[in-house]
Design a protein around this nucleic acid. Sequence first.
DNA 1: GTTTAGATTGTACTTATTACAATATTGTAG
DNA 2: CTACAATATTGTAATAAGTACAATCTAAAC
Lengths: 151, 151
Amino acid sequence: MTDRHYGVHGEFRDLLCSKNIKPSYQRLLILEYIMKNKNHPSAEIIFKNISRSVPTLSRTTVYNNLNIFVRKGILSSIKTNKSETRYDIIEIPHAHFYCLQCKRIIDVDLKIPLYRKNSIQGHKIEEVQVQFRGTCRNCFNKKEKKTKNVL
Amino acid sequence: MTDRHYGVHGEFRDLLCSKNIKPSYQRLLILEYIMKNKNHPSAEIIFKNISRSVPTLSRTTVYNNLNIFVRKGILSSIKTNKSETRYDIIEIPHAHFYCLQCKRIIDVDLKIPLYRKNSIQGHKIEEVQVQFRGTCRNCFNKKEKKTKNVL
DNA sequence: GTTTAGATTGTACTTATTACAATATTGTAG
DNA sequence: CTACAATATTGTAATAAGTACAATCTAAAC
Ligand SMILES: [Mn+2]
Ligand SMILES: [Mn+2]
Ligand SMILES: [Zn+2]
Ligand SMILES: [Zn+2]
């Protein structure tokens, strides 16, 4: 909105410009949110959090811009068990662990040659997603404790 | 429905029984469809195809039973770019290629040690999904042809 | 300051899926 | 065989995530 505000987001501003996306106020806020909260948020979570400080924000704006960011290769969209889409910054390739209990998506560093292939069995690869599903460390420990208490 | 019909599906019948699922007429048809059409169908596709011969079939039955099959470990649910869930038999582990053009999900044989791990970084793994996205061989060739014609 | 392209907003709509209650089918015990 | 209980199926209504679209707003170029 103001020049001062834009100044604060210099880094994100440059990223958007480099991808030919006009760095609007809302776009910067959305990008900033994802960059600073690397927890693979959904559109709804992003909307709720930003609209606390910007009550005029529209859900449509969030959806629109997330789609633009994905198309332009800034974000990747992650689908889990549930029906909602979640978002992650595209930077160094990594895998994800989706916890069926707490619904968190946890980064998993995994060095596999897969990420470098640009075609497989004749099909042209644009993106690779490796997703584990199960019970995360936290939830597993909690369950263990409960079991012990019962004994 | 009839004993005769059950007989035809002996193999699928046994599979369901072994998982403690009652082998109802509808369940056998759904399982049979997925087993015989290994093209990762959606609930809607399964519904449309089976209801051609069984017009009384309800969408809810299809959804219910697909969910049961997933919970019991007979099927895995695959999420793509689009919002619909697609289904695959759990047998030998393999990866998938999702074509962004024709929306087909193509099996990719990929021998990676990943499949055998049962935990990663302390998180308990129940399932691994490797999904490539891009343009499949078919669609890529079609595009090539078009480009040639233009020249 | 006007113009104009593009961004945002709010509402209505779509699509996939689930909740739920009524009905139907099955398997079992008398 | 018949009655009963347990489970499955069905149809409708509801939900949830996301998209279409038209009106309004913004910004930056002239
Ligand atoms: Mn991540
Ligand atoms: Mn497959
Ligand atoms: Zn967890
Ligand atoms: Zn294709």
